[in-house]
């Protein structure tokens, strides 16, 4: 790839590069041709790479519509000969999928709501109110983002055990709703809102809480959306938290339920893939609705870190 990439980049030509040997009209035409060939090449390359990246999803969906013994056919059958839709009807009785989905949804929504609320509230204190000790405190927040969670999961677990909260949703909600990431992301965004705007509101007699609620919050809608979507997806997909804290089957999330199904019936390939598809669908939906905000959120958190 590295040998062809410079070649293609050379033909980039944002500015017409004067070629001394070729006469002007011919070079203009060949440049137009070259730039078209070039974008066709990049297109083809991107399409190929994207297809390769999406192959696992194709396999997942295609296998979920097969019988178990057709999943590993040689050669690979990308389109099932017979569509076994019944997999999607049977899974609800094979495992308590509905309960799992409900648990995941409850956790994801509650945690997202609390994280966005407390995160954006705290971020205002860090971004728009000046007081001694503020920056040291913010540093403590940032520092913990860099500490791997595994390094303090044992004390957290002891704390929850002593409080009698293991095997409850409360433990997970408490652990994940007050993360430093939300504060960080929102603060980065608030810093881009001009202070003059808040000053003007102060002159008009708004309290700081009023400024937060009526000026800053409405202006930060894109950042709120980013944080909400990232938190939702993160909680929905979380495996380790529920794995450590939730032991009773009726509290399990989709991820735990799917994993346990795989462990128990590892030869039911088609049904496993059906479960996988169902576990991914809500995320796909959320992602397609708000993908702009995902990308923006990651770019914001990244660029100013």
């Amino acid at each position: 790839m590295s040998t062809t990439l410079p070649g293609r980049l050379r033909e980039a030509g944002e500015l017409p590069a004067p070629l001394p040997v070729t006469p002007p009209p011919a070079s203009a035409r060949s440049r137009a041709l070259r730039s078209r060939v070039r974008s066709a090449l990049v297109h083809a390359l991107l399409a190929g790479l994207t297809l390769a990246v999406l192959v696992p999803f194709v396999w997942m969906v295609s296998s979920s519509l097969k019988h178990d013994n057709q999943v590993f056919s040689v050669p690979v059958q990308w389109v099932p000969t017979e569509f076994v839709w019944s997999n999607y009807a049977d899974i609800w009785t094979r495992i308590p999928m509905l309960t799992y989905l409900r648990n995941s949804l409850f956790l994801a929504v509650t945690i997202t709501f609390l994280q966005v609320l407390t995160g954006s509230f705290a971020a205002y204190g860090f971004a728009k109110v000046r007081f001694p000790g503020r920056d040291v405190l913010f540093l403590a927040y940032i520092a913990t983002i860099a500490v791997p969670w595994q390094a303090y999961m044992v004390p957290q677990y002891i704390l929850m055990q002593k409080a009698g909260l293991t095997n409850t949703f409360t433990s997970l909600i408490l652990l994940q709703a007050f993360g430093a990431f939300g504060v960080f992301l929102m603060r980065q965004y608030y810093m881009t809102i001009p202070d003059e705007l808040c000053e003007a509101a102060r002159i008009d007699g708004l309290s700081e809480y009023g400024i937060w609620a009526r000026i800053v919050l409405p202006l930060s809608r894109p950042a709120l959306a980013s944080l909400a979507l990232l938190t939702f997806v993160h909680t929905w997909n979380d495996y380790m938290g529920p794995f450590i804290y939730l032991t009773s089957n009726e509290l399990w999330t989709v991820q735990l339920g799917l994993r346990s199904f795989v462990g128990l019936y590892d030869a039911e390939y088609a049904m496993i893939m059906t479960g996988s598809v169902i576990s991914v669908l809500p995320i796909l939906l959320v992602f397609l609705l708000g993908q702009r905000y995902f990308i923006q959120g990651i770019a914001t958190a990244g660029m100013k870190g």
């Binding site: 407390t118 004390p155 007050f178």
Partner: peptide, 28 residues
Amino acid sequence: RNTLIGWSFILPNFLGFAALTLLPVVAA
């Protein structure tokens, strides 16, 4: 006054953060 206002914004998140992240980090 600013310190009070500032802390009042940060506190709801900070309580959870201090008890469940900061304290465990130090305890570890």
